[in-house]
Design a protein around this nucleic acid. Sequence first.
DNA 1: TCGGTATGGTCAACTTGGTTGTCCACTTCC
DNA 2: GGAAGTGGACAACCAAGTTGACCATACCGA
Lengths: 156, 156
Amino acid sequence: MNQPTAGFELPILLLAGFRSLIDDLHAELARQGHPEARPVHGFALQAVAAGASTAAELGRAMGVSKQAAGKTIERLESIGYLSRTADDADARRRTAVLTDAGWDMLRRSAEVFDDLRSRWQRQLGGTRLPELERSLREVVGPAALRLDSAGWFGTP
Amino acid sequence: MNQPTAGFELPILLLAGFRSLIDDLHAELARQGHPEARPVHGFALQAVAAGASTAAELGRAMGVSKQAAGKTIERLESIGYLSRTADDADARRRTAVLTDAGWDMLRRSAEVFDDLRSRWQRQLGGTRLPELERSLREVVGPAALRLDSAGWFGTP
DNA sequence: TCGGTATGGTCAACTTGGTTGTCCACTTCC
DNA sequence: GGAAGTGGACAACCAAGTTGACCATACCGA
């Protein structure tokens, strides 16, 4: 019981926590009319909403190639979360904007995440959750809020 | 500053923490002679070492289909981390065992994770890291130590 | 003991998300 | 006005996942 915690537990706990949130989110989103939503879509949509409205910009924001970002945008367009229009000022650009369904998905995601956080808060009690968040913020640094961690599990 | 922490920060922080550990691990593994290692390989290898020595067993352990597990085993075999032999008692089975390189990779991974945990410990000070671990253990439940969270980012 | 069922492994076809490399159209800047 | 940079797209490929089908073997019960 008092043996030192093994280092390999830490990544497993972090992943398990992340995954539990994401799984619960998508189960709830499916229930609320977004069965097509995938984790990577939420991240990308968030980035587009935050201003990364072209494939090249989205690629930079998510740390992937512009081609990969272009594919993701295509996919989000085909699901109906994004639509693209020509740019008057720059004929090369095709500007992506969120559709109503896109905004709805993002708004519901935020609500569900708030609910899930409340559940953790209730479960842990006191100030343990804010302390957990503060510790994580401290070790991951200010780069944490970047969204460039979406789909990188297999490749370099 | 005192506004309530938004729920969507929590998954981002957890993912950022996980990713920072995994990125650092693989940078160090590459330096120590394992440039081919991928995150998913470590998980699979760990599962094989823990007794999931056939494709079907590995599939169950990692929560993927036996076909996917079979492909992973093939991949690990081609890199040189696993080798497969016939099973005397059951002619259907092809039992996978870790090669020396496989054990080396696993051992080094454990060491690097220990180092990384020490770095976090130093950075946070006091009992904040054990508290973080305890909180996570509490919210994710006993299922946490299962390895079935490897490569599920895009698909249902 | 034998026949039905369960299990392990593999093949094939497909999907998703990623990669490079190439190319063209358009902007920007000197 | 031309060189350099940027946005987008196409092609070919890779890794890991999925289902479905199939075969060989093992297990078990009437």
